[in-house]
Amino acid sequence: MLRCIAAALLIVPSIAAADVIDVSNAAPYPDLFAPDSAPAERRDLVLLGDDMVEIAVALGAADRILARPADIDLPGLEDTPHVVRDWAGVEGIVAMRPGLVIGSNQRFETLLAGLERVGVETDLIDRILPAPEKVRRLAAHLGLAERGEALIAEIESAYTQAETVTRDDGAPLRILHASKQGAGGNFSAGGAQTAVDNLIARVGALNAAAEIGRDRYRPVTPEGMILMAPDVVIISEAELPAFGDIGGVWQDYPGLALTPAGRQERLIVMREMHVRNDAASSGIATVALSEALSEMFE
């Protein structure tokens, strides 16, 4: 079966080769407000989600953040008093004396329900929601509705700047987010119901993993990778060390070298937050990917 699929790939229309394109130096989020410019009487906000943190900082509310996820790299968070691990419990959160706890992942539902039972205000702003809706809801909680609308306008304006790049035959490009997170440390690909799926759609391309029925981040096999047949691979700059170097992406990732992207070594390196979160940087990420594709194929 694998041999037949590999042979079939040889008839895929060709696209001009290009070097690796690194857009990981794109701005982390829109520079509309200084990270600590919003009024803050005290730090009382616990955010359980990188996307929520990015939005809060972009709204200028960094000084309200009492606790946030440990592994997030954004300017403006240097003075956050606490970090929260995925296994945080009700007692640990309550001990911080938060005024508001907001999560963006369904896995925090039990924790949020427990906090509500002891009188802590909570909300779940699902990470799969469009970025503008997440911004609007968090801004309302923070009393920053006007800033929220300004940030939404900036995001949506950026969306309109993204140009669609197609294959030589006019078909949409097939893009794959290659990862080693979200599948027990195994090689995985970002499918439907992920931020990268939304990102790929905004540049007029197809998510190669979603096209064969994959959702979230699932382990991949060589056969599955060949069926995905990506024209381009996206990787987060934070994950490059896990592959050793750029060459390791093609050598170690199962089946990737046999795909159109692998044969031409077409790789786009992006910021971790831009790939994994639909948040304040959503518009910036969309433009960065669109421009990288234009440079690669035109």
Rank of each mutant, 00 (worst) to 15 (best):
I5F: 01
A7K: 13
A8K: 13
L9P: 07
S14V: 15
S14I: 11
V23W: 02
S24E: 00
N25I: 00
P30V: 10
A34F: 08
A34M: 13
D36I: 04
S37M: 06
R42N: 12
D44I: 13
L45G: 02
V46L: 09
G49P: 04
D51P: 05
I55F: 07
V57H: 05
A62T: 10
I65R: 00
L77R: 14
T80F: 05
V83M: 11
V84S: 14
V84F: 12
D86K: 14
D86R: 15
G89S: 14
V90R: 15
V90D: 09
E91Q: 14
G92S: 14
I93S: 06
V94C: 02
V94S: 13
V94T: 14
A95S: 15
P98D: 00
L100W: 02
L100M: 13
V101S: 03
F108C: 06
T110K: 14
G114H: 06
V118A: 03
V120Q: 07
T122E: 08
T122W: 07
D123T: 05
L124A: 00
L124G: 00
I125F: 01
D126L: 10
P130D: 11
P132S: 08
K134S: 08
V135W: 03
R136A: 15
L142G: 04
G143P: 12
A145E: 15
R147G: 02
G148E: 06
S157G: 15
Q161D: 08
T166P: 02
P172V: 11
P172S: 11
P172A: 13
I175A: 04
L176S: 05
H177S: 13
K180H: 06
N186E: 15
N186W: 00
F187E: 01
G190A: 15
G190N: 01
G191S: 04
G191A: 04
A192P: 01
A192Q: 12
D197N: 15
I200P: 08
I200S: 06
A201E: 14
R202T: 02
A205N: 04
A205Y: 05
A209E: 10
A210C: 10
E211W: 00
I212C: 05
I212Q: 11
R214P: 00
V220T: 12
V220R: 06
T221D: 06
P222I: 13
G224L: 10
L227D: 11
L227G: 06
L227F: 11
A229T: 04
V232W: 02
V233K: 01
V233W: 10
I234R: 05
I235F: 09
S236I: 00
E237F: 01
A238T: 15
L240G: 05
P241A: 09
A242D: 12
G244Q: 07
G244K: 09
G247R: 02
V249Q: 03
D252N: 12
Y253L: 02
T259G: 10
T259N: 09
P260R: 03
A261T: 08
E265A: 11
E265N: 12
E265F: 03
R266Y: 05
H274S: 12
H274W: 04
V275G: 05
V275K: 07
A279P: 11
A280S: 04
I284V: 13
I284R: 06
A285W: 01
A285F: 01
A292C: 07
L293D: 01
E295Y: 03
E295V: 03
E295K: 15
